[in-house]
């Protein structure tokens, strides 16, 4: 977080049917419903998250991602980042305080990948859901479904991912944790981190700009991934692939779809990195193993289904 960007803060997702989405994200994924605004947008979070929400659902005729927001440490850092973005030739759009419920002013911009991102420094601090700040119990009772602990990262499909990674590294202060590269050095995937997490955001090169491949939520263990997979069957939720393990990040994972076709992941474990670590490189000819370490191949659906 060398330039003041702390962490992924939220994602606004478009869904075809807001009630079906609310049921899925609360009863299957296990997020908590934290609010609804006059526009009908629904605010949710995983129980370990301290700010009021991390997922915003908006009904639309086209599913996908409206934007992903990163929380910045303070107002000075936000102002400094605005100057850096302008200097990098990025157009900024200002969103007023309160446009998102209980969130301060936001700076929006479109990355060269075609995705909209935003930065903000203030959001209502409601603390972890269901446990106290002082002498906290291990976990709250009353969690539902997969009991997702937090919104963790996104994987996005876009073009110009080299320029996008440069923007994230040089302006926003991320570092490249993992990558997929051809022998000629062409980057097919870039995983970027702000923290010791294996990724806070990832990009895959695609001909089409601005697409969401998946939104990912954290679970505690492989056992929890298995339990989540059981819940997919119990609820007739469309499974994409898993439970399995990634080569990239070595995380344990299962993929499935929300009722509007947005792909979700729950994952556990995996590698850590620090800014002084060299990026882990997977070679393009081993892309199958890089993505699914056991299957060693990537299904047509995983490659092509995006929103």
């Amino acid at each position: 977080m060398k330039n003041g960007v702390l962490r992924p803060g939220h994602i606004q997702l478009r869904v075809l049917d807001i009630q079906a989405a609310l049921n899925f994200y609360t009863n299957v994924l296990g997020l908590r419903h934290m609010g609804t605004d006059p526009q009908g947008r629904i605010y949710l979070k995983g129980w370990t998250e301290v700010d009021k929400y991390s997922v915003v659902l908006r009904e639309s005729d086209t599913p996908g991602m409206d934007f992903m927001g990163f929380k910045v440490i303070d107002e000075d850092a936000l102002n400094m980042l605005e100057q850096k973005l302008i200097k990098a030739g990025i157009a900024i759009e200002h969103k007023e305080k309160g446009e998102l419920q209980d969130c301060g002013q936001r700076l929006q911009f479109v990355a060269p990948s075609g995705h909209r991102f935003e930065l903000y420094f203030e959001k209502a601090y409601t603390g972890k859901w269901g446990i106290e700040d002082t002498d906290p119990e291990a976990w709250p009772r009353g969690l539902k479904g997969m009991k997702a602990t937090r919104f963790d990262h996104c994987l996005l499909y876009g073009n110009n991912i080299d320029e996008t990674a440069e923007l994230f590294v040089n302006v926003l202060g991320f570092f490249v944790s993992e990558q997929v590269a051809t022998p000629e050095g062409e980057k097919l995937a870039q995983f970027l981190s702000l923290s010791t997490k294996a990724h806070d955001i990832a990009f895959i090169k695609s001909e089409e700009a601005g697409k969401l491949h998946h939104v990912s939520f954290l679970l505690d263990s492989w056992e929890e991934i298995l339990r989540a997979s059981d819940l997919l069957s119990m609820t007739n939720t469309p499974l994409d692939i898993g439970p399995t393990r990634h080569g990239l990040t070595h995380g344990k994972t299962v993929y499935f779809f929300d009722p509007s076709g947005n792909r979700c992941e729950v994952f556990a474990g995996g590698d850590y990195s620090y800014p002084d670590h060299k990026p882990v490189t997977w070679s393009a000819q081993n892309i199958g193993k890089a993505i699914f370490y056991h299957e060693q191949e990537v299904s047509e659906r995983f490659r092509t289904a995006v929103t």
Partner: peptide, 29 residues
């Protein structure tokens, strides 16, 4: 081909040449 099963990804797009049907909500994209 089977995709997201939610009307979102477009992978199972087909065309009905004749006959009647009704549809749930699908991505306008």
């Amino acid at each position: 081909p089977i995709g997201c099963k939610g009307g979102g990804c477009g992978i199972c797009k087909i065309r009905v040449l004749s006959g009647e049907y009704r549809c749930g909500k699908m991505s306008a994209a």
